[in-house]
């Protein structure tokens, strides 16, 4: 089969499964039906089953991935739309996100270092709290393994969505501001989507936190790598 055919099949199959999962997730609302989790899992199983290497899939997959960069630029729009709220809660938002970003980068780094993991693995762990396209860009700057970076991002997103009710109780987060900042700082887009389902204000604050956190972590992660690795 030639490359173009393989590419078209990879793109088509990915988009078909994605469009099938979307309505299921709307109905079921479980972290396991999140498109990023369900579609990726189905695709991995299919590729393993048919013994197709990741490289072959990426002949088409790279064209979907190509849109990640423009999608990050697109995040300027919600930032612009929520600017009034951002201004009103400027201090608490900045403080919470900055401290959250710092906690995320350093706890990951030091726990992994304490357990003696190699440098490359720790580099992949650093940007885990930010949305995938930014994490990948940070990963490129860090020269870490990109696929693994994306894997930790997904783990941070999904685990955050799952444990959020427990964390809210434990840390007494009762208002949309605390909850939204927590979700966006820790679990990026997956957390924001989960927040949005719960409460519109929590979701909007979470999207602001996600964007701010992306900016702060993209400065913090390379800095911490330089200092501690």
């Amino acid at each position: 089969m030639n490359e173009i055919a393989i590419g078209i099949i990879a793109i088509t199959v990915t988009i078909i499964i994605y469009s099938l999962i979307l309505p299921i997730h709307k109905k079921v609302q479980s972290p396991l039906t999140l498109p990023i989790v369900a579609v990726s899992a189905i695709m991995i199983l299919a590729l393993l089953l048919f013994d197709i290497p990741y490289e072959t899939y990426m002949i088409g997959g790279q064209w979907i991935e190509f849109l990640m960069g423009p999608a990050v630029v697109a995040l300027a729009l919600p930032l612009y739309r929520h600017y009034d709220m951002l201004k009103k809660y400027m201090k608490p938002i900045f403080a919470g996100v900055t401290i959250g970003a710092f906690v995320g980068v350093t706890t990951g780094l030091f726990m992994a270092k304490a357990l003696g993991f190699e440098r490359e693995l720790i580099l992949a762990l650093l940007p885990k709290s930010v949305t995938t396209p930014v994490a990948i860009s940070i990963g490129e700057t860090l020269e870490g393994p990109l696929s693994l970076t994306a894997v930790f991002v997904v783990i941070a997103g999904v685990s955050g969505a799952i444990i959020s009710p427990v964390i809210f109780k434990l840390f007494k987060l009762e208002r949309p501001i605390g909850r939204g900042i927590g979700m966006g700082s820790a679990s990026h887009a997956i957390g924001t989507a989960t927040s949005m389902d719960r409460d519109a204000l929590e979701g909007s604050i979470s999207s602001i936190a996600m964007i701010l956190s992306a900016i702060i972590v993209s400065i913090l992660a390379p800095l911490c790598a330089l200092l501690f690795l």
């Binding site: 809660y89 938002i93 403080a95 919470g96 996100v97 993991f117 444990i163 809210f168 208002r175 700082s185």
Partner: peptide, 27 residues
């Protein structure tokens, strides 16, 4: 598997600490 655990623990801390700081200051 410890890398997985580290990610989950670190995520929980970010959410709890970052959220608590914001909520305290806003409140």
């Amino acid at each position: 598997i410890f890398l997985l655990l580290i990610t989950v623990i670190s995520t929980a801390l970010v959410m709890g600490v970052g959220g608590a700081v914001s909520e305290q200051l806003a409140h």
